[in-house]
């Protein structure tokens, strides 16, 4: 597969990503991909709308009154869909100012609108990549791997053929999250109780979502000695998954564009051979091919073949 980056540029990648942040799919429309734009808008904002319907727009009312500031939505996963958040704040805000019962679908609805925020982050990545690659086939693969990395930590690495790394990421992050949930005795699995910690651990994807759906409704009837440590562990696991997702995206992007792989080692770049399924794909790099990191290794090379 040969991609000439200079020849196939469709528009400014930053503009495309920013447009998508405000209106999901707008970046794709800007790039001339109307089908993608429409489908992504329907999916992302449909998910957000469904979440608002189920939660009656009360997700941000989980916050105590003194915490209901402009910063709160910025620190929630919904911020990935800026247009959605602004719409929610305009129409629902923090509610009427007095306590009222939660609707039946508040937990699921809150998760759906948060998922729409995460999903739109991926839509922005896709728009940015599409603007540089020109072809949606090239742009989709790294973003799909990143989406899988969000859903299940380590799955994105598996999708890229980096099984050992995927297994280590899965064991470490899911283990950390499980340990945290055990220490907090499941009390961390509630957005109502721990709004900000919940936002961090939501980046764990399905492990956090499924755990909350199964164990999230438990009552706290006594002091939990290690609750703070448990909350921190759950949140750190989610935030570390951001790092894992960035690793997956950078790797996928390097492969798609034929860029060198990132390496922190000064002697990197020597004596390595191809091992990836799509290794050997030839990519013509234009001026946008950049050297990143202290030193680099050609993207068609893997650790398994590194000659030491």
């Amino acid at each position: 597969m040969a991609v000439n980056l200079d020849g196939s540029k469709r528009g400014n990648p930053n503009v495309a990503a920013l447009l998508s942040w405000f209106v999901p799919g707008a970046g794709h429309v800007y790039l001339g991909s109307f089908g993608w734009g429409l489908a992504l808008f329907a999916l992302t904002d449909g998910l957000y709308w469904l979440g608002l319907q189920l939660s009656h727009g009360m997700s941000f009312e989980f916050l105590d009154p003194e915490l209901r500031t402009v910063v709160a939505p910025i620190l929630s996963p919904e911020i990935g869909n800026l247009g959605g958040v602004l719409w929610q704040m305009k129409h629902f805000g923090y509610g009427p100012g007095f306590p009222r019962p939660w609707p039946e679908g508040i937990v699921l609805g809150s998760m759906l609108s948060a998922s729409a925020g995460m999903l739109n982050g991926l839509v922005m990545c896709h728009a940015h990549t599409l603007a540089r690659a020109g072809s949606s086939a090239v742009a989709t693969r790294p973003v799909l791997s990143t989406a899988l990395a969000w859903l299940v930590p380590g799955l994105g690495h598996f999708h890229q053929g980096r099984k050992l790394r995927g297994a280590v990421v899965f064991v470490l992050l899911v283990g950390l999250f499980a340990l945290g949930s055990a220490m907090a005795e499941g009390s961390n699995l509630s957005r109502e109780r721990h709004f900000y910690y919940w936002a961090g651990q939501f980046v764990m994807g399905l492990p956090a979502i499924v755990s909350e759906l199964v164990w999230g409704g438990m009552r706290v009837t006594r002091d939990i000695p290690y609750v703070e440590a448990g909350l921190v562990f759950g949140c750190v696991a989610g935030l570390l998954n951001v790092l894992a997702m960035l690793d997956v995206y950078a790797f996928g992007e390097a492969r798609a564009f034929g860029w060198p792989l990132k390496s922190g080692h000064p002697d990197a770049g020597s004596s390595v051979q191809s091992g990836h399924p799509d290794a050997g794909s030839s990519v013509e790099l234009g001026s946008s091919a950049v050297e990143r990191g202290a030193s680099t290794i050609p993207s068609t090379q893997t650790s398994e073949q590194v000659s030491t």
């Binding site: 790394r165 470490l172 790092l243 690793d247 792989l261 390496s263 922190g264 080692h265 090379q301 030491t308």
Partner: peptide, 13 residues
Amino acid sequence: TLGAFYTDALDQR
């Protein structure tokens, strides 16, 4: 470990 993975794309390194 996650920091090391992020810094270096090659498992062995």
